[in-house]
Design a protein around this nucleic acid. Structure first.
Lengths: 232, 232
DNA sequence: TCTTTTCTTTGATCTGAGTCAATTAATCAG
DNA sequence: CTGATTAATTGACTCAGATCAAAGAAAAGA
């Protein structure tokens, strides 16, 4: 299982400050626990659970899910190595969705309560956190836009390119990466039917845009995909 | 034009800290400018413009817009009294979309550069900002979810209820409020055709869910609307 | 005021994507 | 390895919502 390097991780600016601060702390209560293992299918936290920590994905992948009135599960996001999990609960101190591991994975866990209590490094930590949250807002904005006003092919193309970009940013291959979530998960996330996801993926293969076997996606024509999205 | 009270504004926790800090500052360079007037159609900032300040809507309304490849405008959000504008640019120091006033409006403008330089109040200001950003992330998450997987009626219902809730939260009527944006703007935002927005609105009227004349919406049956959304 | 332009509504038609159904492939348990 | 269960693909059909078109209502200019 390939892991993201700390230097490529979104939470790292905060980790550094916290860990630096920790050395000076008399009590050895770790505020930061690196590389916690999580089994496939395990919940990182559940909906309505009180907020206690932020997580950074070290390896593997996760999905964020809510349950609607009829009890059906809805996927509202995916997390890959280097991604931040849990920011949505900072203000209300309660998680607004559950997060489940899609495979054997590892996270780094940071106790935010402690972070905001650790005195002289507090300001640096806060500064770092502000940056991270700002980044998060900008990203969410983009994702929302690219999903809402687009058709099935555009959504899928944007989704695949997004995965590729994230893979590249975290130090992995930008051309080839794992599609660890099921077709149903993708469908739910993109607001499409399973069957449509399947059809669009095979269409993309016949167009020569991507190659796909087992869980591995290969970008054969990234520019073409970019065109399909219809965005800049 | 009705204005939101500062105590009902999202940016207020930050304003308070900043303004308190300002009194002690030797230089009288204001970091906070309250109630700046903006004319209808005027840009608050444009896409790709360097980030310099956060804005809080005091009165009126705004839309956030990007332009796609074909040069067509896409609405990606609306701002009402009490809302925060500009958070998406904090991390990258560049605005990722433009914001245009939908009518005569007022904003409070806060220079964030200064905020993060003002010394002993800095920590309080940062704490406040973290809360605000966290709230922003949680809200965006909700909006995205409610839009992507819903049909036209569900989107419109959620949109109207969202406006009502925001209106109520800011100290205005929850039953009655202005629909200051055009049908096209709503359509673009919700990812629908103008015609569909129009049709759904008339359907809602004939169902007795809302009343609508000129720019004023009245909720006649909020529970009914809530049911239409199909969410909790 | 009247005219022009823009916005909104309503109707008719068409199409992308959802639903239902059946087949094939992959994963899991023993 | 083998049968059982679950996931993915493919096809046929349907419908919500897009597009096209035209009329009506508001808003902006003169």
């Amino acid at each position: 299982m390939q892991e993201v390097a700390c230097c490529d991780c979104e939470l790292d600016p905060l980790c550094q400050v916290v860990e630096y601060g920790e050395r000076d702390l008399a009590n050895s209560e770790a505020t930061l626990r690196r590389r916690q293992p999580i089994r496939r299918g395990e919940l990182l936290f559940s909906e309505k659970q009180p907020f206690s920590s932020l997580f950074a994905v070290k390896s593997g992948s996760y999905k964020a899910i809510t349950t609607d009135l009829s009890g059906k599960e809805r996927v509202i996001g995916f997390y890959l190595p280097g991604d931040l999990i849990g920011a949505e609960a900072i203000a209300n101190r309660v998680h607004s969705f559950a997060v489940r591991a899609l495979q054997e994975s590892r996270v780094c866990k940071m106790d935010l309560q402690q972070v905001t209590r650790c005195g002289r490094d507090r300001e640096m930590a806060q500064q770092a956190l502000i940056q991270i949250l700002g980044q998060e807002i900008a990203l969410n904005q983009q994702v929302t836009t690219s999903l809402i006003q687009q058709n099935a092919e555009q959504r899928m193309a944007a989704f695949i390119l997004g995965l590729a970009r994230r893979s590249g940013l975290r130090g992995f291959s930008q051309q080839q990466f794992g599609l660890t979530m099921s077709r149903s998960d993708i469908a739910s996330y993109l607001g499409l039917a399973r069957e449509t996801v399947s059809r669009v993926l095979t269409r993309f293969q016949t167009y020569g845009l991507i190659g796909l076997n087992k869980q591995i996606v290969k970008l054969r024509n990234p520019e073409g995909l970019e065109k399909v999205t219809g965005m800049r």
